[in-house]
Design a protein around this nucleic acid. Structure first.
Length: 831
DNA sequence: GATTAGGCTTTG
């Protein structure tokens, strides 16, 4: 009795299982006594049946507990189930994804895939006569059960092995007879999004076709929107169950009837088989998959019958055109009672100036203004009449498809248009006219659908000007860096970045300034942008969409890294990678290793070469030879290539020579050291190269115009090194009365502190400036409500977290810390 | 087991 199908709610099923007790999936382990236990779960995945040469079968499924409290990963517990032999084969034929099954007579094994699939550490093994699976399924609909013995089977366990899942029969659209109830498949050639009727329901209107070339209208009334077909575009495939055929105006039509259900699929050949349905249980077997694939390949060759959806990006929209637009909603605002403004973008830029619509900033949901470069990409859509209600339910950040949108050139009668704009001739306005003719409407698209994925790729690839280069660095990189444990060896260069001795005095300084800020509306920061937007609360920022700018008045609750030298990073603007500054111990090791390994080499012809013997010392270091190669071209600019020196010696020499490039011998040639070591020392400044982007070789820089200028850029270029830039990266937790918010300080960190990251890497004064600023904003020991207030400009953008999931990110931009009062000057640490 | 709408050559 391996596989038995039971009708849900039917008595026998319950009886069969009364002598067994159910084990929650989480509690399953190899120590579970399985003899009288069952495990119940919904089949969330059914892998293809594997048939072995021996005639044996193996089937893997994943079942998930239903209705149990979610575990730490916010998912119901699931477990792999492996079925063997006849059981595997029977199960494959009788059970569908979505069915609820109860397994009994299993054994428990260690899951070999736990590392990969992150599912349960154990699996269930079902083999032999003792193993069986009960399948619970809702009772079959009356129309089908008459011709199917399934209901009878459910009460006769003996026949269970041969149980076949109830099959739906589908009628071709050319074979419909009036007055019957049928199941059909079809390709959508026209559709209207569900609209409110004068009755109690919403109505969806479809026209579908199939290989018969008949085009059949379908009318679907359902009270709940989720029961309606989820059609995104012409060409989608639908499967309708229980529609009645009737004649209207001499044409066959299909109308929803009792027990109606619909599933929709992507219509593209090779597209996703993921069913669009809100149905809790539905049948979908290989036969269905075959039908979908057949319709897809048939439709692919029917360009006349199924015209390509008129979806075009904003950059291709021509004046007067009607089109479907896939886009993301950034903000929205009511214009009047019959019109709502939707501000959307799709990542492409129109050649036409897009009409600006002036609305009350206070009435705007989402940001009321955007940086100018973003504004150029935003289309203003005016949605009229019946669409106002739909628009009301949309949220900034939603991905949308707007159907039958009209591009209107040079409109001058738009509500809210200013008189100066009336004179603009070349701009485009976008109107979604009232009514639902021509399929006019709006649908929210799920983020995982291919069109949205494609659009997001376009959005992410937008060429940014330098003010926006942060968006190229996705946030998984940021998170990763911040997640790095602080195993960093403090480089001596930065050891004093947070002077212990000065901490107390800093706190005193800050106390006095925070005392002022609680009684005075002054701010310890200054905004340096010209955004025309008013100050909002952090909770409003969080509610707003994933783009735009906000002005906030906040306090600093906490920040990372606490050890400020860790805020200094190296950034490659070519590959946008971000890394920690290598610590001195590592760099010293590279120098030492290079000097030990140095073999004979031929000195470059373009250099004057010499040797210096460095005697060994009492501590046991041997006598070494240091090679010195002075560029003849840059004699006066002092470009020195040095072999065999230690890091310490290089630092000492860099006090007396302008440019030192540490090198080593390798296969008889001079080469640069390992890329983690600086490729150049200039005084106290060290310059690093990107390991990934550099193709280093020791070459003499070319003297430009009479040896005019020799700087780190010219040297890097000559050496084939892609130089890394010092940057500052911090994560700040802001707070106001409404909420708290984590924000990054990166793009404008230098502006914020009024220092350059390169200076921070090289001098104590710049380091002090950062620690003073942080101490004044976040004095140690002070209660947070006494901390000074900051007026900040926040940029909102979309990034990805470690799992590649979308995440709304925030950065402080265009803001500067105003200097703490000079009354308590910092105790500058003489480094 | 009622009722809804029954695309369509649009236009603020």
């Amino acid at each position: 009795m391996p596989v038995q199908v039971l009708s849900e709610g039917a008595g026998p099923g319950a009886k069969v299982l009364t002598h067994l007790s159910s084990v929650p999936i989480v509690l399953i382990s190899t120590s579970t006594d399985c003899s009288d236990k069952t495990v119940k779960g919904k089949v969330v995945r059914k892998c293809p049946l594997v048939s072995l040469a021996s005639g044996d079968f193996i089937l893997k499924i994943i079942i998930q507990e239903e209705g149990s409290p979610p575990d730490a990963s916010h998912q119901n517990p699931s477990i792999n189930v492996i079925l063997f032999g006849a059981l595997a084969k029977d199960f494959d034929g009788a059970v569908n994804q979505g069915d609820v099954v109860v397994a009994a007579g299993f054994t428990v094994g260690k899951s070999p895939t736990v590392q990969k699939d992150k599912l349960h550490p154990f699996n269930l093994l079902l083999r032999g006569d003792g193993a069986c699976v009960y399948v619970f399924r809702p009772p079959p609909p009356p129309s089908v059960s008459r011709s199917s013995p399934a209901a009878k089977r459910s009460s006769s366990p003996e026949v269970s092995r041969k149980t076949k899942v109830r099959k739906y029969t589908y009628v071709g659209l050319g074979d419909l007879k009036a007055g019957s109830v049928v199941n059909v498949y079809g390709v959508v050639v026209f559709f209207k999004q569900p609209f409110k009727t004068r009755g109690t329901d919403f109505c969806s209107s479809l026209k579908i076709t199939d290989q018969s070339n008949e085009k059949i209208g379908c009318t679907i009334f359902c009270e709940k929107l989720e029961d309606h077909p989820k059609i995104y575009q012409i060409g989608d495939i639908v499967r309708l169950h229980r529609v009645k055929t009737q004649f209207f105006n001499d044409s066959m039509t299909l109308v929803k009837t009792f027990g109606f259900s619909v599933v929709a699929f992507d219509g593209a050949v090779g597209g996703s088989m993921e069913p669009r349905t809100s149905s809790r249980s539905f049948n979908f077997d290989q036969e269905d998959q075959r039908r979908v694939e057949e319709l897809r390949s048939w439709a692919a060759n029917q360009s006349v019958l199924v015209p390509p959806a008129p979806a075009i990006p904003l950059c291709d929209v021509q004046p007067k055109a009607y089109f479907d637009l896939t886009c993301q909603l950034l903000s929205k605002a009511p214009v009047d009672s019959t019109c709502t403004l939707l501000r959307v973008w799709d990542g492409t830029r129109s050649d036409h100036t897009l009409l600006k619509v002036i609305v009350e900033p206070n009435a705007t949901e989402g940001p009321s203004s955007f940086p100018p470069e973003r504004e150029r990409l935003i289309a203003n859509v005016l949605a009229y009449d019946n669409h106002v209600e739909i628009a009301r339910q949309l949220k900034p950040g939603d991905f949308l498809r707007i159907y039958n949108l009209r591009a209107i050139p040079g409109s001058s009668k738009v509500p809210g248009l200013t008189s100066s704009q009336e004179e603009e001739l070349d701009h485009l306005a976008f109107h979604l006219h009232g009514g639902n003719a021509f399929g006019r409407g709006i649908r929210v698209l799920p983020e995982n659908c291919p069109e949205v994925q494609e659009m997001k790729r376009v959005m992410e690839a937008i060429p940014e000007d330098d003010r926006d280069d942060f968006s190229e660095l996705n946030d998984s990189a940021l998170m990763e860096i911040w997640g790095t444990p602080p195993e960093f060896m403090e480089p001596s260069l930065l050891r004093a970045a947070i002077p212990e001795s000065a901490a107390g005095e800093e706190a005193d300084t800050a106390e006095s300034s925070s005392g002022i800020s609680t009684t005075h509306p002054s701010s310890s920061t200054e905004r340096r942008c010209d955004h025309d937007t008013h100050t909002v609360s952090l909770s409003e920022v969080k509610r707003s969409g994933p783009a735009g700018v906000h002005h906030v008045r906040v306090q600093l609750r906490s920040y990372e890294p606490q050890r400020l030298h860790q805020a200094l990073k190296l950034y490659c603007s070519k590959c946008t990678s971000l890394q920690d500054v290598p610590d001195d111990e590592l760099v010293a090791g590279i120098f030492s290793e290079a000097s030990r390994d140095s073999g004979p080499y031929s000195a470059p012809a373009w250099a004057i070469s010499g040797q210096v013997d460095i005697p060994g010392n009492a501590l046991g270091s041997p006598t070494r030879t240091m090679g010195v190669h002075l560029s003849t071209e840059f004699m006066s600019k002092e470009l020195l290539f040095l072999t065999g020196s230690s890091l310490e010696e290089t630092c000492l020499l860099s006090a007396g020579y302008e440019n030192i490039v540490p090198v080593r011998s390798s296969r008889g040639q001079l080469t640069l050291l390992h890329p983690s070591a600086p490729f150049l020392f200039r005084g106290r400044r060290r310059y690093y190269g990107c390991e990934r982007c550099s193709e280093a070789a020791v070459r003499e820089p070319v003297c430009a115009e009479g040896g005019k200028l020799l700087d780190e850029k010219i040297i890097a270029e000559a050496l084939g090194v892609e130089p890394l830039r010092f940057v500052l990266l911090m994560k700040l937790e802001l707070q106001d009365a409404s909420d708290s918010l984590h924000v990054f300080l990166w793009r404008d960190a230098e502006e914020f502190f009024g220092v350059s990251a390169e200076d921070v890497a090289a001098n104590q004064e710049a380091q002090n400036r950062i620690s003073q600023s942080m101490d004044s904003l976040c004095p140690a020991g002070d209660s947070t409500d006494e901390r000074p207030w900051m007026d900040l400009c926040l940029t909102v953008y979309r990034g990805e977290d470690e799992d590649g999931l979308n995440k709304t990110c925030y950065q402080i931009c265009n803001s500067t810390v105003t200097r703490p009062p000079p009354s308590a000057p910092p105790n500058a640490n003489p480094a």
